[in-house]
Computed example of a mutant assay.
Amino acid sequence: MKWFSKYFINGLIIIVPIAITVFAVVNTFSFTEWLLGRYLPIHFPGLALVVVLALIFLIGWLSSHWLLKGIFDYTERLLGSIPIVKFIYNSVKQLSTTVFESQKLLENAVLVPYPHPGVRSLGFVMPDLSEPLSKQFDEEHVCVFVPMSLNLTAGFNIILPRRDIIPLDVTSESALQYVITAGAVMPRSNSNC
Results as ranks from 00 to 15, higher is better:
Ala24Thr: 00
Ala24His: 03
Val25Cys: 01
Val26Tyr: 02
Thr28Tyr: 04
Phe31Ala: 02
Phe31Pro: 00
Glu33Ile: 00
Trp34His: 06
Leu35Ile: 07
Leu35Gly: 05
Leu36Arg: 13
Gly37Ser: 08
Gly37Gln: 05
Gly37Trp: 06
Gly37His: 07
Arg38Gly: 04
Arg38Thr: 09
Arg38Pro: 00
Tyr39Ala: 01
Tyr39Asn: 00
Leu40Lys: 06
Pro41Asn: 06
Phe44Gln: 12
Phe44Asn: 13
Gly46His: 02
Gly46Ile: 05
Gly46Asn: 04
Leu47Cys: 10
Ala48Ser: 15
Leu49Gly: 02
Leu49His: 04
Val50Leu: 14
Val50Cys: 06
Ala54Asn: 05
Ala54Leu: 11
Ala54Tyr: 10
Ile56Tyr: 01
Phe57Glu: 05
Ile59Phe: 05
Ile59Asn: 06
Gly60Cys: 03
Gly60Arg: 02
Trp61Arg: 04
Trp61Tyr: 08
Trp61Ile: 10
Leu62Trp: 06
Ser63Val: 10
Ser63Tyr: 11
Ser64Ile: 14
Trp66Pro: 05
Trp66Lys: 10
Gly70Leu: 09
Asp73Trp: 05
Asp73Pro: 00
Asp73Met: 02
Tyr74Lys: 08
Thr75Asp: 03
Glu76Phe: 05
Arg77Thr: 08
Arg77Phe: 09
Arg77Glu: 08
Arg77Asp: 09
Leu78Phe: 15
Leu78Met: 14
Gly80Lys: 09
Gly80Trp: 12
Ser81Arg: 15
Ser81Trp: 12
Ile82Trp: 10
Pro83Leu: 07
Ile84Ala: 10
Ile84Ser: 07
Val85Tyr: 12
Val85Phe: 15
Lys86Asp: 10
Phe87Arg: 11
Phe87Lys: 14
Phe87Val: 08
Ile88Asn: 10
Tyr89Lys: 02
Tyr89Ser: 03
Asn90Arg: 15
Asn90Trp: 11
Ser91Gly: 15
Ser91Tyr: 13
Ser91His: 14
Val92Asp: 02
Val92Ile: 07
Lys93Met: 13
Gln94His: 06
Gln94Trp: 01
Ser96Cys: 13
Ser96Ile: 15
Thr97Gly: 09
Thr97Lys: 05
Thr97Ile: 08
Thr98Ser: 15
Val99Glu: 01
Ser102Asn: 14
Ser102Glu: 15
Ser102Met: 10
Gln103Val: 04
Gln103Ala: 03
Gln103Pro: 00
Gln103Ile: 03
Lys104Thr: 15
Asn108Asp: 15
Asn108Ala: 11
Leu111Thr: 07
Leu111Trp: 12
Val112Leu: 03
Val112Ser: 00
His116Leu: 04
His116Ile: 05
Gly118Asp: 10
Arg120Asn: 15
Arg120Ala: 12
Arg120Val: 13
Arg120Leu: 06
Ser121Pro: 09
Gly123Val: 13
Val125Asn: 05
Met126Asn: 08
Met126Ser: 11
Pro127Glu: 01
Pro127Leu: 04
Asp128Ile: 10
Leu129Thr: 13
Leu129Lys: 08
Ser130Lys: 06
Ser130Gln: 08
Glu131Asn: 12
Pro132Trp: 14
Leu133Gln: 13
Leu133Lys: 11
Ser134Trp: 01
Gln136Leu: 14
